[in-house]
Computed example of a mutant assay.
Amino acid sequence: MKLTFNSKFLFIFLAIFLIEMLIAKYLNDAFIRPFGGDVLVVMLIYSFFRIFLVTDNKRLALGVLIFSFVIEFLQAVHYVNWLGLQDNTFWTVVLGTYFSVYDLLAYFVGYLICLCFKD
Rank of each mutant, 00 (worst) to 15 (best):
D119Y: 04
L62G: 11
G84A: 04
E72Q: 06
D119M: 05
L27C: 08
F48A: 08
R50E: 14
G36D: 02
N28G: 13
L112H: 10
A106Q: 00
F52S: 03
I32D: 10
N81E: 13
V39E: 01
Q86A: 12
F17S: 13
I16N: 07
L85V: 11
R59L: 15
V101C: 09
F99S: 04
K2M: 08
T89F: 13
L104T: 09
L60F: 05
F90I: 11
M43I: 02
R59Q: 15
L104S: 12
F67K: 02
V93W: 11
I51K: 02
R59F: 09
L53R: 05
N6C: 14
D38I: 01
I16V: 15
F99T: 06
E72F: 06
L40N: 03
C116E: 15
L3F: 12
I23C: 00
C114A: 10
V54D: 10
T89H: 13
D38V: 08
Q86Y: 12
A76L: 06
R33K: 15
L22A: 13
M1L: 09
L115S: 06
Q75F: 01
P34F: 09
M43R: 01
Y79K: 05
S7D: 15
L60K: 03
F13G: 01
L44Y: 02
I32L: 15
V80M: 03
G84L: 00
M43K: 00
C116G: 14
S100A: 11
G36L: 03
K2E: 08
V80Q: 03
S68W: 07
V54Q: 07
F5W: 14
N81P: 01
C114F: 11
F52I: 06
L27V: 14
L115V: 10
Q86S: 12
L95K: 07
S100F: 10
P34D: 08
K118E: 14
K58H: 14
T97V: 12
L74W: 03
S7H: 12
S47R: 05
F13H: 04
F99M: 09
F17Q: 08
V42F: 00
N88S: 08
F117A: 03
F11E: 08
L27D: 13
F73S: 10
F73E: 06
V77K: 13
K8M: 12
I66V: 11
V77A: 07
D103S: 03
G63L: 11
V94K: 08
Y107H: 08
L53D: 01
I51V: 13
I19G: 00
L95A: 15
